[in-house]
Amino acid sequence: MKKQLWILGLLMLMASIGHTQNKQDVLDYLYGISGKQIIAGQHNKEPNAEPAKWTDYIKATTGQYPALWSGDFLFQQENIDNRWKMIKEAEQQWNRGAVINLMWHCCPPDMGEPCGWDPGLLNAQLDDQQWEALIKPGTDLNNIWKKRMDDIATYLQYLEDKGVVVLFRPFHEMNQELFWWAGRKGAKGTAELYRQTHDYFEKEKGLTNLIWVWDMQDMSRDFEEYNPGDAYWDVFAFDIYDQGYDQSWYDYILPIVGDKPMAIGECMRIPSLEVLENQPRWIFFMPWAELVKERNTETEIKALYSHPGVITLDEMPGW
């Protein structure tokens, strides 16, 4: 019996080492292309019943698949019901060689799941007393939040067991004050919720396949007020919906990021060829689901995908 337990423990250790190596392989790849090339990405959201809808649109439009596939746990009942379908798509995309990005539009902890968009994710902020309870261990709100994390960890653990590395981007757009989690500056604000979530997934749940993404939006230059700390994020992502392609934003971000990888985490308009030339540190761009079609012409999309510095799925090394 002792020998069997020893063998089981050894196998679990070997699997953990393998997953850690997979994570390092992805990080090494991202560092390796920084300043040289940029990964073409695409987000897929509603419906989770069609988790490659907009990735397939890119293929139909350009003849190439994006090298980064992105999905979302989402918050509506029909999309919650199809989370496993989305996760299985993530596994398939990884096996094809794609980089995997996952978002979590999470319902406010004082509401149940499912919830609405507005009010719900938007305009349903916690008051100061509720926020303090949320980040204080042992309170009702804190325990509710841990249960939410337990639910999401089940899916992330499945991906770890399959060897899939995930760029995980919780609490995106920390400076977007309409989101319930965002707009709280300082040590006990949004950054603290991010840190606690990071530690719960890694220390309590034992996940080793997550590359943590810290994400901000092009709306206020107060990023340090939301920085969780260098130990808590691996990749910086910048969401561009206004004037974010302006060179002044890029120059503002560089000293904050240092030598870590930085990406265009979301965008309505895809980057121009001029942006690629003048802002070489972006490691991927990721148009937002249907906005890639609504806010860009097919000619623009094709031109970007044919740029020699843009990496498509067929050019990925494989994991």
Rank of each mutant, 00 (worst) to 15 (best):
F236A: 07
Q64H: 12
K302W: 06
E192L: 13
D215H: 10
G32P: 03
Q37H: 08
D215W: 02
W54K: 04
W288H: 00
Y29M: 10
M286D: 01
P170W: 07
I240P: 00
W94D: 08
N101I: 02
K205P: 03
D230I: 06
L167Y: 06
W84E: 15
V257K: 06
Y158I: 09
G138Q: 10
S220T: 15
K188L: 07
W212M: 04
D242H: 11
A263T: 00
I17N: 15
S272Y: 04
V292M: 12
A187P: 03
Y226Q: 00
Y57M: 11
E78S: 15
W288V: 00
F75T: 00
G97D: 07
Q4H: 12
E50K: 12
S248T: 10
E290D: 14
L178A: 10
G71A: 10
T61H: 00
E89T: 12
Y155P: 01
C107G: 00
Y245I: 09
N44K: 06
A182Q: 00
M103S: 08
P119E: 09
F171W: 13
C115K: 07
W117Q: 10
G186Y: 00
Q243P: 00
K2F: 11
F168I: 02
A60N: 13
M14Q: 13
E298P: 09
E89H: 09
R96M: 14
L141S: 07
T62I: 06
E113W: 11
T312F: 06
D28G: 08
W117T: 13
I211A: 02
K147I: 08
H172W: 09
A124C: 13
I256E: 02
I240G: 04
I58F: 01
T20G: 14
Q42A: 03
L210M: 11
Q125S: 12
W117S: 14
P108A: 08
Q77G: 11
M262K: 07
K260E: 04
E202V: 13
R195P: 05
Q157S: 12
K2R: 13
A49C: 05
P114S: 14
W6S: 15
K185D: 13
Q243E: 14
W288P: 02
I253K: 03
N95S: 11
W181D: 03
Q196R: 09
T62V: 02
R221S: 08
W54A: 01
E225P: 00
W214L: 04
T197I: 10
D110I: 03
K146Y: 12
V166C: 05
K2T: 14
E224M: 13
A98V: 04
F73R: 08
P119Y: 05
T55S: 09
I311C: 01
P287E: 01
E132R: 15
L11Q: 10
H19R: 13
F238H: 03
G63V: 08
L167C: 07
F179E: 02
I39H: 01
F238D: 00
H172E: 09
M103F: 14
Q247M: 08
G206I: 10
G229H: 02
Y250T: 05
M103Y: 14
L304Q: 12
K302Q: 13
L156K: 03
R169Y: 07
N22C: 12
V166A: 06
L207N: 09
M12L: 15
D234R: 05
Q247Y: 08
Q92V: 06
I144A: 11
S70G: 15
T208P: 09
H105M: 09
